[in-house]
């Protein structure tokens, strides 16, 4: 197990440093911060709300991540496949899941870093008013889980193709489904045809439903379990896809 941990660490380290040796990381960080700023303060009317909370900030995350997380993760496996390094990676004496986990963790750490850089928003809220900091921490935790779920889905689609653009589009579509299943306008529409139980079941699959709890400051094990299972399932699917791809 010790060797597994060191393999994961080695792969994650390489992956993470490859973000920073190219402009990708910096471009992403700048755009991410600009967009969060725009959505929070302008579109979200952070100041006009007159409440000391980060609802205006976190509320946008499912939508913001919809585009940004696939952009971070789309190259994870498709690039390895395109350049042929997949053959190197999978002929090292490691298990495929170690590589999958290592690469996933590297990108997740990168997204966590981007998220951490939004700390001025929390400081602003604290400076202007007296927000519930527990709620803010829960919001950050939820946002990180949300990013992880999207990222795992992007890993999966990235393993499907050598083409990063295709990987990007597939992940956006897949993540969009996860949003829409619990998005109010959609659930309202569904209630016209389906029984409330059905609508609720569909909504239970949505990231929005589970992310809401975190935003309210509640870290519910069911919500944690939901995100963990999305991540686990998508990474497991990645391993199946990689195995079958290798089979031709």
């Amino acid at each position: 197990m010790n060797t597994a941990a060191s393999h994961i660490k080695t792969i994650a380290k390489r992956e993470l440093s490859s973000y920073f040796t190219s402009p990708v990381a910096y471009v992403f960080l700048v755009i991410f911060l600009l967009l969060t700023g725009f959505f929070t303060f302008t579109a979200g009317q952070f100041f006009e709300r007159g409440e000391a909370s980060l609802a205006a900030f976190f509320g946008w995350h499912p939508w913001l991540y919809l585009v940004l997380v696939p952009a971070v993760g789309m190259r994870l496996w498709s690039e390895e496949r395109r350049s042929g390094t997949l053959e190197l990676l999978l002929t090292f004496p490691i298990n495929a899941w170690e590589a999958i986990l290592g690469k996933f963790l590297a990108s997740w750490i990168f997204l966590a870093l981007a998220l951490a850089l939004t700390f001025p928003v929390a400081i602003t809220a604290n400076w202007l008013g007296d927000p519930d900091n527990g709620q803010i921490v829960a919001g950050y935790a939820g946002s990180l889980m949300l990013a992880g779920a999207y990222l795992a889905i992007t890993c999966m689609t990235s393993a499907l193709t050598r083409n990063q653009v295709i990987a990007f589009i597939l992940s956006v579509v897949a993540c969009l489904f996860l949003i829409l299943a619990g998005f109010n306008p959609v659930t309202d529409l569904l209630t016209r045809w389906a029984s409330p139980a059905v609508v609720e079941t569909i909504a239970a699959f949505s990231v929005v439903t589970h992310f809401d709890g975190f935003q309210k400051g509640v870290i519910d094990t069911r919500d944690l379990l939901y995100f963990a299972s999305v991540i686990g399932f998508a990474l497991f699917a990645t391993s199946i896809i990689l195995r079958n791809r290798r089979a031709g």
Partner: peptide, 16 residues
């Protein structure tokens, strides 16, 4: 795999 050293076709590597 531990016993093998492998040079795949087209000699892939991480360009960055």
């Amino acid at each position: 795999k531990r016993l093998i050293g492998y040079l795949p076709e087209n000699a892939p590597s991480y360009p960055d």
